[in-house]
């Protein structure tokens, strides 16, 4: 402490009077805060020191990432090309091998039989045509009956007519179970069958 003050004393003595300290000089300014100094503005946090990693490790890491992505892409492409096989659509090899064994000897048809068959097929075509014409006529008749009914309704009341030509939304969904070959047996207990699910899983 003593030393310091002594030093200061000494330094004051050592300063030559010609070089004046700016504090002591008298400036004429309009602002009062001439002597204040503001610290520098930084506008950001000082940079942290970067951790140094071995470039070889970085490279290896990058490589691994790329490989992984490539593998995924390859797998996707492969699966896109490979279609799910339909077992039912493929003829079993066993059948293909015994193809000739399974051929049925063709019966020798007499000329009369061939003629009779051809005649029957022609008759059938005629029969189906008539049936079709009858069906078309029938549809016409039924549609005509409806049209006539609607016309009569329009004569009677326009409001009722407008209500009648609205689409029937209750019809959708429409379900109908068709005619069967033999009537259902009442209270029939269906014998239990065995059920084995053999379908394959085709996940990626």
């Amino acid at each position: 402490m003593f030393n310091l003050s002594l030093l200061r004393q000494f330094s004051r003595l050592a300063i030559c009077p010609a070089t004046k300290i700016p504090i002591s000089s008298r400036n004429i300014t309009t602002t009062a805060a001439v002597q204040f100094k503001i610290t520098d503005q930084l506008w950001a946090e000082p940079m942290k020191k970067k951790k140094k990693i071995d470039p070889a490790i970085v490279k290896a890491r990058e490589e691994r990432r790329r490989k992984k992505l490539e593998k995924q892409i390859r797998r996707l492409e492969k699966n896109a090309r490979q279609l799910k096989p339909l077992d039912e659509m493929e003829v079993p090899l066993e059948l293909l091998d015994n193809f000739s064994k399974r051929k049925r000897p063709q019966p020798k048809l007499s000329a009369e039989v061939i003629e009779a068959r051809a005649l029957l097929q022609k008759d059938w075509a005629r029969y189906k045509k008539e049936e079709y014409m009858a069906n078309v006529a029938q549809v016409d008749r039924i549609m005509g009956a409806q049209r006539r009914a609607l016309e009569k309704l329009l004569e009677e009341s326009e409001d009722l007519y407008n209500e009648a030509i609205m689409p029937d939304l209750q019809l959708i969904p429409y379900e109908v179970s068709g005619t069967v070959a033999t009537p259902a047996i009442k209270d029939y207990a269906t014998p239990d069958g065995e059920y084995i699910d053999v379908s394959k899983k085709w996940d990626n």
Partner: peptide, 26 residues
Amino acid sequence: QFLSNAPCGFYKYKYPSEVNGKIGAK
């Protein structure tokens, strides 16, 4: 189950005598 909002057929008949000012039914 009804199959349509529209009638499918029509029939008209007359009453033997007028009923409440109506001569028949459609």
